[in-house]
């Protein structure tokens, strides 16, 4: 069976609209991941024995279990708790929570790389804990880890096809349906593969540029 360019072209508009959903899920999921991840990282650092320990175990657990199961869990369990969300929102939430655990570890590395002297200088100037994080620690901790966060953005992008398992009409789901209707899977699935390849290679290139920019960080003075 040969690659049918005509058919490929025919499926392209549908796939592109699926790709839009994919990108939406990625961006929204990343916003959740960046925010929740930061919260987890700060709690882990400052939360003391109980809260900090809980954050640490939560991160560990989420990182060691499959996204697909987490996705099913939210999809099937939330309605039972009276929370009805659209599949897309459920998917965004699952992606966000899953990658929040990864982002938390990235932030942690950044936080740990801020020298002790910076904490002490902030304390000696009378900064209260909240302002110490906001004004002194995080502005130093986050820029160096932006490339690493970018890599997780790409990883999350490549995980969005899993949302097809909970009926989200993202690009892979569109391709599968097109294939099932025509019994021609080769063209739509290959196109999906190419889309992912092009987008993630481009994004990797951008991340490398970020690395060049943030790699040589201002050293603590």
């Amino acid at each position: 069976m040969n690659f049918d360019w005509g058919y490929a072209l025919e499926t392209l508009p549908g796939l592109l609209s699926g790709l839009v959903i994919t990108l939406q899920a990625t961006v929204l999921g990343m916003l959740v991941a960046l925010t929740l991840g930061l919260l987890l990282a700060v709690l882990r650092h400052a939360g003391g024995r109980w809260i900090g320990g809980a954050a640490r175990h939560f991160i560990e657990f989420v990182r060691s279990t499959p996204l697909l199961i987490q996705l099913y869990f939210l999809f099937y369990v939330l309605p039972g708790l009276g929370v009805t969300l659209s599949p897309l929102v459920t998917g965004v939430l699952a992606l966000g929570v899953h990658y929040a655990a990864y982002c938390a570890e990235v932030y942690r590395a950044g936080i740990n790389s801020v020298p002790r002297g910076q904490w002490e200088a902030a304390a000696s100037l009378g900064y209260p804990a909240g302002a110490r994080w906001r004004r002194i620690i995080l502005p130093q901790a986050i820029p160096p880890v932006i490339p690493a966060l970018g890599n997780y953005l790409i990883a999350m992008f490549k995980d969005t096809p899993l949302l097809s398992a909970i009926t989200v009409m993202e690009v892979l789901q569109v391709a599968k349906i097109a294939g099932a209707e025509s019994f021609r899977y080769l063209e739509p699935l290959t196109l999906v593969g190419v889309m992912f390849l092009v987008l993630s290679l481009t994004a990797s290139r951008l991340v490398r540029r970020l690395e060049a920019r943030y790699g040589r960080q201002a050293r603590p003075a």
């Binding site: 002297g117 002490e120 200088a121 000696s124 100037l125 009378g126 130093q140 003075a221």
Partner: peptide, 15 residues
């Protein structure tokens, strides 16, 4: 802490 101020050996300026 507001009554005291400190200058450190390694400066600890905010970079």
């Amino acid at each position: 802490r507001l009554h005291a101020g400190m200058v450190f050996q390694h400066f600890n300026l905010f970079p």
